[in-house]
């Protein structure tokens, strides 16, 4: 009976993942390897191609600017018109930063819907659901991001664009420091060769984590976490019979992800303090008093 239970859970979580995420690893790999009938993504490798992408992929590269205050959801600032080339470059970097934010907001929304579909999640105290999302979404986001990355770049705009690693690295500090650690993580993580069914369970395990600060009912979250982690362990044994150490290796990645999120939160804080840019209210909520 236990085996049957875990198979049902695996199926439910995999289905929730396939239903709620616009991009998945199978889709991303088809695009990245050119094995798809859809047009090849637009390669973004400099400011010129970035601006071309902004015009042609406008629908999925929304670069809104967000008000700083909590009450200002949806308020827009208008950048002053500038002629100076350096300022134009700075504006483009800020717009790129906002594109990243829009993608993050979209993924957080998808992750919330995914979490709600994980059996047991919605039975938790509402405060605990908030806590689990607050601390889990960025770890989950960087896990999903790895699916869209190869050693040379990252798929963006729902597969319509491919932004090169070198271009991202060439941006002015602190923007240029933002993505490199994610590429390094992705290279190591992608070497595990997980598929979407494995990733679905891993992302569910990230979100349903019993040691997040401030949980009201730790034992209930731990019970949920235990059932997901057991399902993940059994699923990996069945799905990757030749790789018996995959489960412990995957669990080690949780520590890497936590470190990646801490570094990322510090960079975002630095950008918020020193740059003339703003943060989406949802992301403000997540980062506030995080670590």
């Amino acid at each position: 009976p236990m085996e049957a239970d875990h198979k049902i859970l695996v199926k439910q979580i995999h289905e929730a993942y396939m239903k709620n995420f616009n991009m998945n690893k199978a889709k991303a790999r088809l695009i990245l390897t050119g094995k798809t009938s859809t047009p090849q993504p637009l390669i973004i490798h400099d400011m010129e191609t970035f601006q071309l992408a902004e015009r042609t992929l406008a629908v999925h590269m929304v670069s809104g600017d967000y008000a700083e205050s909590d009450g200002g959801v949806g308020d827009r600032q208008v950048f002053p018109a500038v002629a100076c080339e350096e300022l134009e470059q700075r504006e483009a970097e800020a717009r790129l930063f906002h594109c990243c934010q829009s993608t993050s907001v979209e993924t957080v929304t998808e992750l919330t819907e995914f979490a709600k579909a994980v059996p047991g999640f919605q039975s938790l105290d509402l405060n605990d659901q908030v806590t689990l999302l607050k601390y889990g979404v960025y770890e989950a986001l960087f896990t999903l991001l790895a699916s869209c990355m190869n050693k040379d770049g990252l798929l963006v705009a729902r597969g319509g664009g491919f932004i090169t690693r070198e271009f991202l690295k060439s941006l002015r500090r602190p923007f240029g420091d933002m993505m490199e650690p994610k590429f390094q993580f992705a290279t190591r993580f992608n070497a595990l060769e997980l598929d979407d069914s494995d990733l679905a369970l891993f992302v569910a395990a990230i979100i349903c984590c019993g040691d997040r600060p401030g949980l009201v009912d730790v034992s209930l979250v731990e019970q949920l976490q235990e059932s997901i982690v057991q399902a993940l362990r059994l699923h990996l044994l069945a799905n990757h019979p030749d790789d018996t150490f995959l489960f412990p290796r995957l669990l080690q990645k949780l520590a890497d992800l936590r470190e990646l999120v801490t570094e990322h939160a510090q960079l975002v804080q630095e950008i918020k303090t020193n740059e003339d840019t703003s943060l989406h209210p949802l992301l403000q909520e997540i980062y506030r008093d995080m670590y």
Partner: peptide
């Protein structure tokens, strides 16, 4: 927690996209 995480609460209770807010 609810006061500090209004949008997360809203997302948990319905599926309004924060992009559209």
């Amino acid at each position: 927690l609810k006061e500090k995480h209004k949008i997360l609460h809203q997302l948990l209770q319905n599926s309004t996209s924060p992009v559209d807010l």
